[in-house]
């Protein structure tokens, strides 16, 4: 065993990284198979009306589709790992470039959405659980039920009507890169972020409430009270920390979902995110782009999961030390 694996935390992390790599390889098998499983000949589809016998043979050879499958897979994995995801049938642009173009917008939306969701869900969920059965709990529960039920496009239109059309405080659509103009970035990302964040926040409020409720009944919370600790410390140090593990799980899922593209919100706000790119690629049967996007989204899911696992270990010594 290598020396750096002597520490249990290092071994825990190493194991997670290896698992993620295995899953990613599995995803590559799937994305690779897409091209070979779908009906129709991808080369024909790519050529479309430009089809001639010579063009067909040339493109087939150029894209390596005339080689045996295992060889194709090996070279696919090899080039994917070096960032070469092929060329879009539709635009002729390298897939990696198309994806990289969209990634900042999607990441902005995901991070802002998650932050808004947490800002809403943490205090409300904790408050509702600590006041279980009271009026405030009922109000929060009804509110979160409403938030879960509201369709996001409608919420988006509502927010545009209010903040853009009526009050004129924020732009109704578009995207400005953070590095070009941080203020413009913020004003553009707020409304779509709020749309995504309100929905995710409503879901997370319910999870946080349930998680806190479970912890509150634990004996160690009574122990904490029996020490005469101030309620703030009991809540933050003893209740919240223990409730955080299930909360992290759901926050991770929400983040990964937004990262994978929230197509309706992106359409409503004319947001240049991954969701719309994937939608357009599917509509045009742009297989290289679909492959690349699926791979990227899967990789982001795995990364988020990895981070969540690391945070689990940071919070819980039972995971860290066993």
């Amino acid at each position: 065993m290598p020396a750096f694996l002597a520490h249990p935390v290092a071994r825990f992390l190493a194991r997670r990284v290896v698992y993620s790599a295995i899953v990613l390889l599995g995803v590559m098998v799937v994305t690779f198979s897409i091209v070979h499983l779908v009906p129709g000949d991808p080369v024909r589809i790519a050529l479309g009306t430009r089809y001639t016998e010579e063009a067909y043979t040339a493109l087939r050879a150029a894209s390596g589709l005339d080689r045996p499958l295992p060889a194709q897979f090996v070279s696919y994995v090899g080039s994917a790992l070096t960032g070469d995801l092929g060329v879009s049938f539709r635009t002729g642009q390298p897939v990696a470039v198309s994806l990289a173009d969209r990634l900042p917008a999607t990441a902005s939306l995901a991070v802002v959405g998650l932050v808004i969701a947490l800002v809403i869900a943490l205090p409300l969920g904790i408050w509702a659980a600590l006041h279980e059965g009271r009026v405030s709990d009922a109000v929060i529960r009804v509110g979160s039920q409403l938030g879960v039920s509201v369709p996001d496009f409608w919420l988006g239109i509502l927010l545009i009507t209010l903040f853009a059309a009526t009050l004129g405080w924020l732009p109704s659509s578009g995207y400005t890169p953070f590095l070009e103009d941080p203020g413009g970035w913020l004003s553009h990302v707020l409304l779509p972020g709020l749309t995504v964040g309100l929905v995710a926040g409503a879901i997370m409020t319910r999870y946080i409430r349930a998680a806190v409720l479970e912890v509150v009944s634990m004996s160690y919370v009574r122990t904490a009270r029996s020490k005469g600790l101030p309620p703030r410390i009991v809540t933050l140090r003893h209740i919240l920390r223990n409730a955080l593990v299930p909360v992290l799980t759901i926050a991770g899922i929400q983040l990964a979902t937004i990262l994978g593209g929230v197509i309706v919100v992106e359409v409503v706000f004319a947001w240049p995110g991954l969701g719309r790119l994937v939608y357009d690629a599917v509509a045009a049967r742009d297989y290289p782009l679909i492959q690349g996007a699926v791979l990227l989204i899967a990789a982001m899911f795995l990364l988020v999961n990895l981070v969540v696992d690391v945070l689990y270990a940071a919070i819980d010594p039972r995971i860290r030390l066993s």
């Binding site: 004996s219 160690y220 122990t223 904490a224 029996s226 819980d316 010594p317």
Partner: peptide, 18 residues
């Protein structure tokens, strides 16, 4: 915790695991 101290039944759940 100051003038009255408490010990509860189940030691496996009465200490904070984290």
């Amino acid at each position: 915790g100051n003038e009255i101290g408490f010990v509860f039944q189940d030691p496996s759940t009465s200490l904070n695991p984290l």
